[in-house]
Each structure stands twice: as structure tokens, then as C-alpha cells.
Design a protein around this nucleic acid. Structure first.
Length: 518
RNA sequence: GGCACAGUAGCUCAGCGGUAGAGCUAGCGGUUCAUACCCGCUCGGUCGCGUGUUCAAAUCACGCCUGUGCCA
């Protein structure tokens, strides 16, 4: 990944046709974890999320609900922000494409492409699906005919004849440049099997695409022709740029691009990968701007092995999960128990099993049992001892941060956190092997203190390493270990090195970290 | 139809040329500091199927089957 002066990353800007669901929560959780990891590394981070709000579909939806488009958007956008808060998603910018400043950015960007000569006026004739906001060209593939009426294959709704002049972006001009870029930047699109798909798509030939619509009033006007508005994608992608403006900046491209461009990482669903990996880079090339560092296309989730859908009534509602299990539990499952990138399944039994095994039995119980012994055997105060570098547990913890960081850099959340869990499991084994409760009875106070310190220190290190995933639980571990809130907030990745737990510090034990789910 | 990816213990997955591994689950035992927890042991797989290459294949090649994705 490229480094700018910091690290900028984005989630998709979610379309406000529905309240947030797991499909929007999942990439946002991932982005939040990445953002937290980079902050922990001491880098300044700009974490962008938001909503895409223009388009005919939204205009209609609002009308159906007897709302103005803006009222409708306000409501849905608020729903996103509320869920993000519930999931402990700590974003820096929530950009809405209806932000007045966005209009200025889009105008300026359009004009750049216009001057390059990559935008021309052409005629688009064909069947149009309002719900897809797309022309449907291929029978059988895109649409089917029922009672003489063509219907969208995705939405099953009737298509309408559309014959209008549109502004068109000359994507075809960028085929070669894109291919060259992919050659020179093998990590541009991840995972690599998706890069492969995108490359095949490009190799198959690129068609120019329409970037405007007539007769859609809920949108931004085309600068050179106010009778048309800018099409969803051309508009939405630029939200990433607008989001980079500082609150007091004049809304100009120059200001927006000054600090954070190019964005280091776009996390997107595989369904919109092509827009990000083909259209977006071409647009940026046209405007003469450098391209993002990486586009990561994650997989989809199924539920109990089946696709999720309203019709099946098996949709995962992240809001309900959070209410029932808490944000750390939800975060942990989706980022640890699931491999980022591939398609995966959600199954509530497995969900509960993993939370119990990892968070309650391994991590929570380790802190609890050790803390209890410190209270009983050491007056509730962290023993002031030094641990020999050859100690097995210390040895296990040494170098962990570095390996863990490599996984984080490559967005392997699951592997990164597995290392921390392995340390926790080692801590439990270590306790059993040393049996400080027996040592205490034998009066071996010095040894008791050595053992307990080593375990507490490992738990502390695990907390630091896991904090991008489970910020709440990690903070609670620090609190129970007797650290101040300030100490927690001031932590950095280097605190995952051995020896950060000060001897003499009184513990502050509370209720078990993560109660078992029965 | 073309191009990918996947198919390994009940579950989730690692291994990618040298006598099958981890975690979880289940069963048994131990322990008592602890959230009926932890620790140990055990159960459990002809590594999708077939053919080939090789002294040796889950691992390479070819073909096939199944699932998923991208494209037509």
C-alpha cells in the first residue's frame, strides 16, 4: 500500500434505498478495524464512509413515502450513522453526496474530463430499469419478456423504453492504460483472484458509458447542459474526493486533494468492484489524478448456507445482533471468524460457539482467574518483578507484534487476531503448568509473583493486539489491569512489546470480561 | 460456452512433492485459581473422482464431477 502523509481509506458510499444491513455493516467493520490499526501505528488516518443519495430511484421512493427526497435521505443517512455508532465504528468523515460542497467538486472534476475530451454527447436508446439505474441490453441475460412486456431480471419489474441524448464517458480510450496500470501494480486490486476477473473484463473490451440522465431532477446538473443530471456512479465515486475537504476549505479539487490524496484503500463489495477497479481509475486518469493504492473487493455473506433475501426472511440484521450480543461480539465474529475476501456463511450456533470459546473461556476467563489470584496472593497489586527473557510465555509474546502487524497490513484480520488468541491459550496452559495456587500454599511467594505477572502481561499484550477488532473489550482489560483511561487512549502498537505493565499498579477487577452465552 | 476460485476430521480452515494438521464441537480423565472454566488424552479423514508423472502426490499434469464467482 502506498503511504501518503497518513492513511486514507473508505467504505463504499451506501445507496439510501434502504436502511443499513449486514452488507453495508460488514465492509464498514473491516474498514474501522483497519483504521484503528493504523492509528495504533501512530499514523494519521482519514476514514471515510457515507451515503450516495441522488438518482431516480430515490426520487421515486421518497415520493411513494410522501416525503421530499431530502427528507427521505436524511432519515436513511441518520439510520446509517446510528448503526455505525452502535457498532463502535469510529469514522472521520461521513460524506453525503447531497452535501452542497460535493456539487462544486463534481463540477470541477467533470470539467477536467470535459476538457480532456473524454466526455461527449451521444444518443442512448434502449430498455431502462429504474431500480438498477441501468440500460438493459441483452435479452435473457439482462431481462426477460412476460406477456410482451420486458422485465428486469434482477428486479422483475417492467423496463421502459428510453431514447435520449446522454453525456458519455469515453471509457474505451482507457483500455490500454488500465491494462498497463494493472501490469505495473499487481496489488492494485485484491484479492488477486478478483484482480484476475477485472483484468479479464478489461481485456474483453471496454464500452463507453453514459454519465448523465435526462428527466431526473434529483441529481446534480451537467455543467455544460443543465437539462441533464449526472448519473449515479460518476457522481457517487467523487464523494470520496469531497470527503477529503476540511470543514473550512473552499470546495475545490485542489483543496480536496491536498492532504490525503491518493486514497490508500477502498474497501468495496465484490458487486461494485468493477466500478471501483475500472470506471473509477479511468475517470481519475482522465482528470489527470493519481490512482488509489488498493481496491479490496470482499465477499458476500450467506445465512445458514443460503443466500440472504427479504423474500426468504433470513436477512441478518446487524442492529439486532448488536443489541443481543454487543458490538465487540459482532465485530469479533465478522472479522475474526470469517476470512475477509471470500464468501462466507453466518450461522448463529457457530457465532455463539466462537464467542464463548475465544472471548469468554479463553480471554475473559484468563484475565478473571489471574486477577483473582493477584487479589488473593498479592494484595490486588501487580507484582513488581522482572521476567526472564527465556521464560516460555515471554518468549511466546516476543516478536508477536511484528508478525501480527504483517497480517494487519495485508488485511488478514483473522490471522492477526489468531496470533493474539494463541498467546492467550498459551497463558492458560502456562498457569496450569506452574500452578501458582500450589506454589502459594508452599510459600513460594516469589515464584507466584513471577507467574502472575507474566500472565497479566500477556493478557495486556493480547488486548493491544486485539484492540482494532474489539476496542471495547480491550479497553476494559486495560481498565481492569489498573490503567487509566488516558493510558489506554495514549497506547500505541509498541505497547504490544513486553514489559508495559507497571509493577505496583493496583488492579481494578470488575465483572467477567465477556459472560458466557448459554 | 469461456476464464477463475473452491472441494482435507461433525464445523471453520491450514498444509501445496517426503509416512495427514490446528482451533471449535463431542467423549473420557485431571485440576480447583477461574465465567460448569482451564489442562491433558481420545474419537474422528481411502485429503471430490479417475488416470498419469515420480523412488515418493492432499501437494505436479490431464480428464471428469460438484459448488461459487466473473464474462459471453
Amino acid at each position: 500500500m502506498q503511504m501518503t502523509q497518513g492513511f486514507a481509506l473508505t467504505t463504499p458510499l451506501f445507496y439510501v434505498n434502504a436502511l443499513p444491513h449486514i452488507g453495508s455493516a460488514y465492509p464498514t467493520l473491516a474498514a474501522d478495524a483497519v483504521a484503528r490499526y493504523h492509528r495504533l501505528r501512530g499514523r494519521s488516518v482519514r476514514f471515510v464512509t457515507g451515503t450516495d443519495e441522488y438518482g431516480l430511484k430515490i426520487e421515486r421512493q421518497a415520493a411513494e413515502r410522501n416525503l421530499t427526497p431530502r427528507e427521505h435521505c436524511n432519515e436513511i443517512a441518520a439510520g446509517f450513522e446510528k448503526l455505525w455508532q452502535a457498532l463502535s465504528i469510529d469514522y472521520d468523515r461521513f460524506i453525503r453526496t447531497t452535501d452542497p460542497r460535493h456539487a462544486a467538486i463534481v463540477r470541477e472534476f467533470f470539467e477536467r474530463c470535459w476538457q480532456t475530451g473524454d466526455i461527449y454527447k451521444g444518443r442512448y436508446t434502449g430498455l431502462y430499469c429504474v431500480d438498477c439505474e441501468e440500460f438493459k441490453k441483452k435479452p435473457d441475460e439482462d431481462y426477460f419478456v412476460e406477456n410482451g412486456e420486458p422485465r428486469c431480471k434482477i428486479h422483475l419489474k417492467p423496463l421502459r423504453e428510453q431514447d435520449e441524448e446522454n453525456y458519455i464517458f469515453a471509457l474505451s480510450r482507457y483500455q490500454q492504460k488500465l491494462e498497463q496500470y494493472f501490469d505495473e501494480h499487481p496489488e492494485f486490486v485484491q484479492p488477486d483472484f478478483r484482480a484476475h476477473e477485472v483484468r479479464n473484463f478489461i481485456a474483453g473490451g471496454l464500452e463507453d458509458f453514459s454519465i448523465s440522465r435526462a428527466n431526473v431532477s434529483w441529481g446534480l446538473p451537467i455543467p455544460v447542459d443543465p437539462s441533464q443530471t449526472i448519473y449515479v456512479w460518476f457522481n457517487a465515486l467523487l464523494g470520496y474526493v469531497t470527503a477529503l475537504l476540511e470543514p473550512d476549505d473552499e470546495p475545490t479539487l485542489e483543496n480536496a486533494l491536498a492532504r490525503w490524496w491518493p486514497i490508500d484503500l477502498h474497501i468495496v463489495g465484490k458487486d461494485i468492484l468493477r466500478f471501483h477497479a475500472v470506471y473509477w481509475p479511468a475517470m481519475l486518469m482522465s482528470a489527470g489524478l493519481p490512482l488509489p493504492g488498493m481496491i479490496f473487493g470482499h465477499g458476500f455473506l450467506t445465512r445458514d448456507g443460503r443466500k440472504m433475501g427479504k423474500a426468504l426472511g433470513n436477512v441478518i440484521d446487524p442492529g439486532t445482533l448488536v443489541e443481543q450480543y454487543g458490538s465487540d461480539a459482532v465485530r469479533y465474529y465478522f472479522l475474526k471468524a470469517i476470512e475477509f475476501g471470500r464468501d462466507n456463511d453466518f450461522n448463529e450456533t457457530r457465532f455463539r460457539e466462537i464467542l464463548n470459546a475465544d472471548l469468554a473461556n479463553d480471554l475473559g476467563n484468563l484475565l478473571n482467574r489471574t486477577g483473582n489470584m493477584v487479589v488473593k496472593y498479592c494484595g490486588g497489586v501487580v507484582p513488581s518483578v522482572a521476567i526472564d527473557p527465556t521464560d516460555t510465555l515471554r518468549d511466546k509474546a516476543t516478536g508477536l507484534a511484528q508478525v501480527c502487524a504483517e497480517h494487519w497490513e495485508a488485511l488478514r484480520f483473522s490471522e492477526a487476531s489468531e496470533l493474539a488468541l494463541a498467546l492467550v491459550r498459551a497463558g492458560n496452559r502456562y498457569l496450569d503448568a506452574r500452578a501458582p495456587w500450589s506454589l502459594y500454599k508452599k510459600g513460594e511467594q516469589a515464584q507466584v509473583e513471577q507467574v502472575l505477572y507474566a500472565v497479566l502481561e500477556s493478557v495486556r499484550i493480547a488486548a493491544v493486539l486485539l484492540s482494532p477488532l474489539i476496542p471495547g473489550l480491550a479497553a476494559e482489560i486495560y481498565r481492569q489491569l489498573g490503567f487509566s483511561i488516558q493510558a489506554w487512549e495514549d497506547r500505541s502498537w509498541d505497547d504490544a512489546l513486553w514489559g508495559g505493565l507497571p509493577g505496583g499498579q493496583p488492579l481494578c477487577l470488575g465483572s467477567p470480561l465477556f459472560p458466557r452465552l448459554e
